[in-house]
Design a protein around this nucleic acid. Sequence first.
DNA 1: AAATAACCTAGTAATATACTAGGCTATCAA
DNA 2: TTGATAGCCTAGTATATTACTAGGTTATTT
Lengths: 162, 162
Amino acid sequence: MKLSTKGRYAVTAMMDLAIHDNEGPVTLSDISSCQGISLSYLEQLFSMLRKAGLVQGVRGPGGGYRLGKTPNQISVADIITAVDESIDSTNCKGQLDCNKGERCLTHHLWNELSEQLLAFLSSITLAEFIKDPEIKKISVRLDGTAHRISTMFPVTSKMIMA
Amino acid sequence: MKLSTKGRYAVTAMMDLAIHDNEGPVTLSDISSCQGISLSYLEQLFSMLRKAGLVQGVRGPGGGYRLGKTPNQISVADIITAVDESIDSTNCKGQLDCNKGERCLTHHLWNELSEQLLAFLSSITLAEFIKDPEIKKISVRLDGTAHRISTMFPVTSKMIMA
DNA sequence: AAATAACCTAGTAATATACTAGGCTATCAA
DNA sequence: TTGATAGCCTAGTATATTACTAGGTTATTT
């Protein structure tokens, strides 16, 4: 279990798809300008997401990406593990005797923690975010044209905090 | 909130200290050989942990590091934030108008997720790991000489899994 | 006095992250 | 049928982070 900006890009992009899941595909170009990262890099991330079955590509004009499963079937853990390849959690993997024919206790403890973290992130699905009250407000306000512009919304005091 | 191998090194090292909290200081040299990372790198990590008040250095022979607070006052989140400086969660921080004078909804959603994750890792303290039944077994078996060698323990089938 | 181990700095190798540049293919609309 | 769109793919590269090496100083114990 690893968590970097790369993983965050993937998660936020998937949130975007989830919000517009019933409105048609979202283009990487839109996500690129929203998240402020290069289109080509996004393409690489989505290549991994697609191979993991988390998204579906739709080619041609009006195309883009949509979710590969229902929002409640896609967890944050799924997304992160798809793009952030897991770290070698023991650093002495392969060699069972990392020190004098024995094995570190702390490695075992880390595994326990790592599993707890994975379970936690697995329990959070994209469906939770669609239910967010802030989003409902936006959806109502923008309904018709939501597909193109609802990934953005006006700044509020709540949003400024990091 | 960021989680890399660097953070894992810090967490496992702190677990080590927590286990031996009542037995005297643990040397970085011991941790180095256990975790398989360089002594000097550990020194740099512990410099950050010390500045965060999470550990106390004890100089001279018989010295090493011990916890700076009680195990139940030190959370996994504390450790990770001390060594893995937090990422710029929005990528458009500073400029409030990341796109056409508006702000991305997904950034807001990420902040919510990030806070949930932080709350989760804040709820897990080093005290949990001391209570681990596996550790109790070791402590009983090694009691007197535990300080030096109890960071290691024999391989069991349970341990081989990653 | 000698050994230990924290504590500190500068420089560097290795790796991961993020981007650039180019191209190809499927699909839609004019 | 043609052009625009947008997915899809590869190779190369700039940047940042991670992890290490190699020196050193200082406090403490034996």
